[in-house]
Design a protein around this nucleic acid. Structure first.
Length: 749
RNA sequence: GCGCGGUUAGCUCAGUUGGUAGAGCAUCCCCUUGACGUGGGGAGGGUCACAGGUUCAAGUCCUGUAUCGCGCACCA
């Protein structure tokens, strides 16, 4: 290369992502191509193709899993955009109620030593909102850095004004259908977070525990076993299996005793839920502190007796028990049993302790008045396009959830998650949606003496007070595919054009939390499915296959990777070698490898441009060759190469349609490096320089070769663009003399 | 307890409807002063977890086993 080179100077140095990416992103944004309303005519006339971004929680920063999600969705969107679809990708963030509030609370407690009730609702919300705003800004910046071609003009937040209207409308509609109800039952109470949580927000931890076998008193002839003796102060029955010969004679008998300072009255009942082979085959029934026992109490009309409060402290018992934490009370009850000579056995056992996902608090089942979504209740679905559920027919939310997938209206990738999904629904119980926290959508219900009002706005008149509780964050994210598109206005242009969405791309770990809830909400409120395809990605783990975590200090920050190796390399490293539904391993070396690849494309371009500029034509003085897409004078071998490339295009187009991005990425890599660079460019050198092996003056052979190389470069830039948008666009801008943008070029066929 | 997934080269993983085992990285050897400090060529390395079965033919289909991981339920 010399100073008279005709090729752009930037190609004389290695590809520099840092100096390129922001500039290119701005180029796309200024052209407006992220917004479907500003796409070229070809796209505007095309079929809509919609993805809503799974809104990241405003709890801090994005991790490498988010980066993988963004890479996959951007590949889908860019591919479809190039194919001429009217593509819309909607960005947004999730307020993540408990997660966000508990994070801010922890910080305040650490820094100022204050608890939320000392601050009050208003002040706490002020702090949480400030934190959420900060997180939001960080997240938006990260999404942009990844190269996401997402429509910022349609950005949404699960707690903004429009989404609030959607949430209230949904609540009111479901309330009127009888699907949302207020009821008293045993729920999962998190004493640490001071709120209820749903069944899905529980994480079970395997621990060792003691199983105690004892009698309530010497006068009661039946022994029972439990790992939680302190709850036995609240027992109101002893349950045995109806066929258990050992206990037949006692069924129906009632006993009184004073147990650890508390007078109890128990009745012996027969219930098939009892497993005769466990322990003594007799079970102490504690309706107030066990969901299973509560169900049993309903069947046998047993009284409810609460002995533990919201702070997991005993409310009854002798002086060494009352007022104590449950763990201390447990020891005290065991001591008492020993002293009374009632303890018969003490064995080690494995136990799964229920803990709250967000706070780590040990769940205490408590009876409480809460709001629920009834999943088994029959109702009339006025309008339905879900196959198998007719408009105006009777159905249940469970049916809607099952039918949407089993009918094939929603396709889950990989398919095996169909069964996981169905299995979960079969076990589903009513969804507890009220939370005793402050950050979130306040329940749109108002009370005045014994009147209840549900609506979008507060009722007219004096003296109404709104329900203190907020909604489960998944209630609002369940509406995400349509609350972002203008619903509840059924005539909103976006709603009409883009719903149902095309693909939901998300992690398999939130299939229950989110995917199932979206299907429930959409079926119930719109009578349709929220999306046609669900693409589930796996977890991104470290090079050794471990989960990334703070304690292991093995987190890979996507922003670091982008800074060091570029967004394109980061994206490829998260795509290649990772199939849907499978966990992926990531190491810095992998990212580095793909940075080399970005540079390889850069250098290929440099080589081809120097050839086109005539710089490789030996001493012959020729004018530069300009790419002519209608050129036909290819040699036999060039025609053969083009045929092979066209075969590759067919192959990878089919694989793109099957969501096999990991395969396509690898094939593009392989073709560019090991076919085009290693074979074709090497083979071109003697032709271009007119070495003795070639007819030394065959200018037409040289020109045809340059045309051929330019053709391949144009094609591979298009193919690689969805995967590596920055470097491909940067090169495109040079070789096309800034006449067009690759982002809206046609996908080759 | 019910269910799902993995087990293929040193490592990470592909392997489409059954038809002679593949890629990247790593290792070793050689080459390379004009596209590429990130280059090229080549080599070694696999009883496809194990045992049966179906088939002309099995990494691929069937049955079972082992092992690792995951989900759900139970958890008195």
């Amino acid at each position: 290369m010399n100073e008279k080179s005709l090729i752009p100077e930037k190609f004389l140095k290695p590809y520099n992502p840092e100096g390129t990416e922001d500039k290119i992103y701005k180029l796309w944004e200024d052209a407006g191509y992220f917004n479907p309303d500003k796409l070229p005519e070809r796209n505007k006339k095309g079929e809509p193709y919609t993805i809503v971004l799974p809104p990241p929680n405003v709890t801090g920063t994005l991790h490498v899993g988010h980066a993988a999600m963004l890479a996959i969705e951007d590949i889908m969107i860019r591919y479809k955009r190039m194919q001429g679809y009217r593509t819309l990708w909607v960005p947004g963030t999730d307020h993540a109620a408990i997660a966000t509030q508990s994070k801010v609370e922890k910080e305040i407690e650490k820094k100022e030593g204050k608890r939320r009730h000392e601050l009050g609702r208003e002040e706490l919300l002020k702090r949480v909102n400030a934190f959420a705003q900060e997180s939001h800004d960080t997240i938006v910046n990260q999404v942009r850095k990844m190269g996401a071609s997402i429509d910022w003009s349609r950005e949404a937040f699960t707690l903004d004004e429009k989404r609030t209207l959607a949430v209230r409308t949904a609540f009111k509609t479901m309330y009127d259908l009888g699907l949302i109800y207020r009821g008293s039952k045993v729920i999962n109470w998190d004493p640490k977070g001071q709120t209820t949580i749903s069944d899905d927000e529980i994480v079970y931890e395997a621990r060792k525990a003691k199983l105690y076998t004892f009698r309530y008193s010497k006068d009661i002839p039946i022994s029972i076993s439990t790992t939680r003796p302190e709850t036995k102060l609240g027992d109101t029955a002893i349950a045995v299996h109806p066929d258990d010969a050992r206990y037949q004679q006692f069924i129906g008998t009632e006993y009184d005793a004073v147990f650890a300072g508390e007078a109890i009255h128990v009745k012996v009942i027969a219930d098939t839920a009892v497993e005769p082979s466990f322990g003594t085959g007799a079970l102490g029934v504690t309706p107030a502190h066990s969901a299973i026992d509560w169900d049993m109490a309903q069947r046998h009309d047993l009284p409810l007796k609460q002995v533990i409060d919201e702070f997991a402290r005993m409310t009854v018992g002798n002086e060494s028990i009352k007022g104590k934490k449950v763990t201390e009370a447990r020891t005290a009850v065991v001591e008492w049993l020993k002293a009374q000579g009632l303890l018969e056995k003490e064995e080690d056992t494995d136990q799964n302790v229920a803990t709250a996902e967000r706070t780590g608090g040990i769940i205490e089942p408590l009876p409480k008045l809460q709001w629920f979504v009834a999943v088994n209740k029959s109702f009339t679905l006025a309008h339905s396009t879900i196959p198998g559920i007719a408009s105006g027919s009777q159905t249940t939310l469970k049916d809607i959830m099952l039918q949407s997938v089993s009918s094939g209206a929603i396709k889950i990738i990989p398919e095996r998650f169909d069964r996981v999904y169905a299995n979960w629904i079969h076990n589903l119980r009513d969804w507890c949606i009220s939370r005793q926290i402050w950050y979130g959508h306040r329940i749109p219900v108002w009370y005045k003496s014994d009147q209840i009002y549900t609506g979008i706005e507060a009722p007219a008149g004096e003296g109404w007070t709104q329900d203190e509780d907020t909604l489960d964050t998944w209630f609002s994210s369940g509406l995400w595919t349509f609350s972002t598109l203008g619903w509840p206005d059924l005539n909103a242009p976006d709603f009409k054009m883009y719903h149902p969405t095309s693909v939901l791309e998300t992690g398999y770990d939130i299939i229950f939390f989110w995917v199932a809830r979206m299907i429930l909400m959409t079926g119930c409120l719109i009578g349709d499915v929220p999306f046609k395809t669900v693409y589930l990605h796996g977890l991104v783990r470290d090079a050794k296959g471990r989960k990334m975590s703070k304690s292991l200090d093995n987190n890979i920050d996507p922003l670091d990777m982008i800074k060091k190796y570029g967004a394109d390399a980061t994206r490829l490293s998260l795509i290649i070698g990772t199939g849907p539904g499978n966990d992926a391993k990531l190491s810095e070396d992998k990212v580095k490898g793909y940075k080399n690849f970005s540079n390889k494309i850069w250098n290929i371009t440099r080589f081809v441009l120097s050839a086109a500029a005539g710089e490789r034509f030996g001493s012959t003085n020729v004018s530069p060759v300009v790419y002519d897409s209608s050129f036909t004078g290819y040699s036999a071998i060039e025609t053969e190469h083009i045929k092979k490339l066209n075969d590759l295009i067919k192959e990878i187009t089919a694989e793109m349609d099957e969501y096999k991005f990991y395969l396509v990425g690898e094939k593009i890599y392989h073709y560019i490096w090991h076919e085009f660079a290693d074979k074709i460019l090497e083979e071109s050198k003697p032709i271009l320089s007119g070495l003795p092996a070639q007819a030394s003056d065959d200018m037409s052979a040289r020109i045809s070769r340059v045309q051929f190389l330019l053709h391949v470069v144009h094609t591979i830039l298009k193919l690689a663009h969805p995967f590596m948008p920055y470097v491909t666009e940067e090169i495109w801008q040079e070789i096309q003399a800034k006449k067009s943008q690759l982002i809206v070029e046609s996908w080759p066929i």
